[in-house]
Simulated assay, not measured.
Amino acid sequence: MALRPVERLIRSHPSQDGDGVKISRIHDFGGGLDPFLMLDELGSDRADDYIGGFPPHPHRGIETLTYVVHGGLSHEDHLGHASTIGAGDAQWMHTGQGIIHSEMPLTDSQGLHAFQLWINLPARDKLSPATYRDVRAAEMPHLTAEKAELVALGGQWHSGEQRIDGPLDTLAGQAAIAHARLQPDGEMMLNQTSPTLLVYAFEGTLVVGETPVPQGQLARLGPGDQVRLTSERGAQALLLAGTPHEEPIAHYGPFVMNTRAELEQALSDYRDGTLTG
């Protein structure tokens, strides 16, 4: 068994999207995180930072996964879905050929804290039918260790003799998504051999192997078959595992295709009202 080392640390940067929503963002549309494209963190106790939300807008060529730590989000789309997710819940959207949706924030006593992850679709699925699913916290299984736990949103996760399968089991790029929580002096060992493995620390400092990963930074791990997570003072993180598509990426705003011509077609389809079929 070989521990997977941290090869690279990527710091999130402040950005803005939707109707003035302030976010922390990590993105790489050059294939460096393949099959993942972007991770946005929404976190504030100031309503002015997010209250405008994300009015109706289109997507094509990706999957999005929205996960709420506290607060909530209300979703509507052109397919007729209308639902609300709260703390511990997630929404998955396979945008395929096209979807037009909105997401509006809800708060609790701590404000809002949520994430949205973009996963690239392979070329064969970029014009497939759009689908949508809510996943509730009660559906997500847990792995437990000494002063630590892992909540599986999707994909397969192993720790020693424990194995769990998250409810989202058809994510693009064989993606697996999990939320790790470590108490002070907590430790968790995971068996994870996916070619792409990313760890985003969003509370406290998480030590991955021998490398500290401070809050707001994402670690890209190298080859191996085990991951050791520890924290002296407690930490929380998102874990993202997957298999690269190794295909060309063409990106413009909410559209991610394989060529510039396909992007121009997406823009044309949106303008003439045929993006969603």
Rank of each mutant, 00 (worst) to 15 (best):
E63D: 03
I85C: 03
D49Y: 04
I62P: 00
L171I: 01
W92D: 00
G53W: 03
D77L: 03
L150N: 07
A87H: 07
F54V: 01
G154Q: 00
V151A: 13
H94V: 08
I99K: 00
T131V: 09
T95M: 01
S74V: 12
L73M: 15
D45P: 12
P55F: 10
D165Q: 15
E161Q: 15
G98P: 05
L106G: 09
G86L: 07
G96N: 03
V151P: 09
T170H: 13
A87W: 06
M104G: 01
D48G: 12
P122E: 05
W157F: 09
H57G: 02
G154S: 00
T64W: 03
H101N: 05
M93I: 11
G155A: 06
F115T: 03
L153T: 02
K147S: 13
R124P: 09
G80L: 09
H142Y: 15
G80P: 11
A138P: 11
G71M: 02
Q116G: 08
G160V: 01
F54W: 10
E146N: 14
V151F: 13
A145H: 08
S74K: 13
E139P: 05
F54S: 00
Q162R: 04
G86F: 08
I119A: 00
G166C: 08
E63C: 00
H158K: 12
D134V: 12
L65Y: 01
L42W: 14
